[in-house]
Design a protein around this nucleic acid. Structure first.
Length: 281
DNA sequence: CGGGGCTCCTGGTAGC
DNA sequence: TGCTACCAGGAGCCCC
């Protein structure tokens, strides 16, 4: 479950259900799920055995669980369809179960379930508290470390469209296709607006919109159109009811009544109000 | 080098 | 009903 609010919902569930627990066994049922853990499945299991999960952290769409000993962490990215579920150890195996982690306390498993296998998990060293593979991504806009001025300068230095920039995790992390469209609508910006034409005040407005939209989504448990996007207990959020443009092709804009338009964008879609969000010339 | 496009997967749904 | 085409909350990698 992809974007920042959904990943944060998962992080909170992990904090509640797996922190302080000692790992017993790790079973990898599909090699693609650990493709970025180069030493392989056996090494992964050996690294985890006997380690205790000490906290649950997140940056953007990445999650990690630092391990006792303080120098490495179990990291996860959910991709398009990944789930981290906490389920009773004798529960039936999910159809798309990829990795199963069992604990010494005999309590519920931590299971990584992922239909499309774009997600992955791995163990990696921590560098200044962040897993080494994600040191290149920017902080997300809810972190203290996020620097608004740096983001603005980075945007204006790029020659690209604003939506592409919002999805570029090295400029700002955590924003995906849904919340990019929602924030652009709120800030009245067309997705194809060149970044180098944005004024400082407009960028400030856009950042406020990003925070507004993702913050509101988090309060409602995230967005889920179907059972693929659930918290660790398998429950859906309901921010989908609050979406203004995403998935609302031909429905009226709540501000002006103009039908929402859908256009192809990077092998997926952009939704916007053609009146509130004027196409740049 | 920065930017844009392709690709890795599985499954649901719309349309013929 | 059965097929095909298209669509899906991501991002790494390759090529220009």
């Amino acid at each position: 479950m992809p974007e920042l609010p959904e990943v944060e919902v998962v992080r909170r569930g992990l904090r509640q259900w797996v922190i302080g627990r000692e790992i017993d066994s790790t079973e990898v049922l599909h090699p693609r799920a650990i493709r970025r853990h180069l030493p392989g499945a056996l090494e992964l299991a050996a690294r985890l055995r006997g380690r205790t999960l000490v906290s649950a952290e997140r940056r953007g769409k990445y999650l990690w669980l630092p391990l006792s000993g303080d120098e490495d962490a179990l990291m996860a990215h959910l991709g398009m369809s990944g789930q981290l579920l906490v389920v009773e150890r004798d529960a039936p195996l999910e159809k798309h179960l990829r990795v199963r982690i069992r604990f010494r306390d005999g309590g519920p498993d931590l299971r990584f379930v992922d239909q499309r296998t774009f997600g992955h998990i791995m163990v990696s060293p921590l560098v200044a508290g962040v897993p080494e593979p994600i040191t290149h991504i920017a902080p997300d806009p809810f972190e203290e470390a996020f620097d608004d001025a740096r983001f603005a300068a980075g945007l204006r230095g790029k020659r690209t469209e604003i939506k592409r920039a919002l999805l570029d995790q090295s400029l700002i992390s955590g924003v995906g296709n849904i919340y990019a469209d929602e924030a652009l609508w709120l800030a009245r910006l067309h997705w194809a607006r060149p970044t180098n034409t944005l004024t400082r005040p407009k960028i400030t407005e856009l950042l406020a919109a990003v925070r507004q939209v993702m913050g509101a989504a988090l309060l409602q448990g995230g967005t889920s159109f179907d059972s693929l996007y659930v918290n660790v207990n398998g429950e859906s959020g309901y921010f989908d009811r609050s979406l203004e443009v995403y998935g609302r092709q031909d429905q009226p804009c709540s501000r002006c009544g103009t039908p929402i338009r859908r256009e192809p964008f990077m092998n997926r879609s952009s939704y916007f109000c053609p009146r509130c969000q004027r196409r740049p010339r």
